[in-house]
């Protein structure tokens, strides 16, 4: 299946792109997708998956979430300052 990835803020800087597309097996999870992202964009290794916030279609998702064809995973930097 095809999965889209959207990078926000410094994750975009580290990856060098706004968006990416992944080809994954049918039973893939977020964890599998993040492993593929780290393989394709090694500079993100320090952050993924534990140090970012991930959303699919407006829902916060965890590593074990099962993916569906054409899902778009948006990766946000966790910020807490004020």
């Amino acid at each position: 299946m095809k999965i889209k990835i959207k990078f926000v803020s410094f994750l975009r800087e580290l990856s060098g792109v706004d968006k990416a597309e992944l080809c994954l097996p049918q039973d893939a999870t977020i964890k599998d997708a993040m492993e593929k992202v780290v393989y394709d964009f090694p500079k993100l290794k320090k952050w993924l998956p534990q140090h970012i916030w991930m959303f699919i279609n407006g829902n916060y998702v965890k590593s074990q979430t099962q993916l569906k064809d054409n899902d778009e995973i948006a990766l946000f930097p966790p910020v807490g300052g004020g």
């Binding site: 410094f10 916030w53 966790p78 910020v79 807490g80 004020g82």
Partner: peptide
């Protein structure tokens, strides 16, 4: 919330929108 040149904002209306814990449980 902010960091560096980056920031996020949302308005939470309990019972109608996700709360902070829905959005950022970690």
């Amino acid at each position: 919330a902010v960091e560096g040149f980056y920031g996020q904002i949302t308005t939470i209306l309990p019972g109608r929108t996700p709360c902070l814990n829905c959005l950022f449980p970690n």
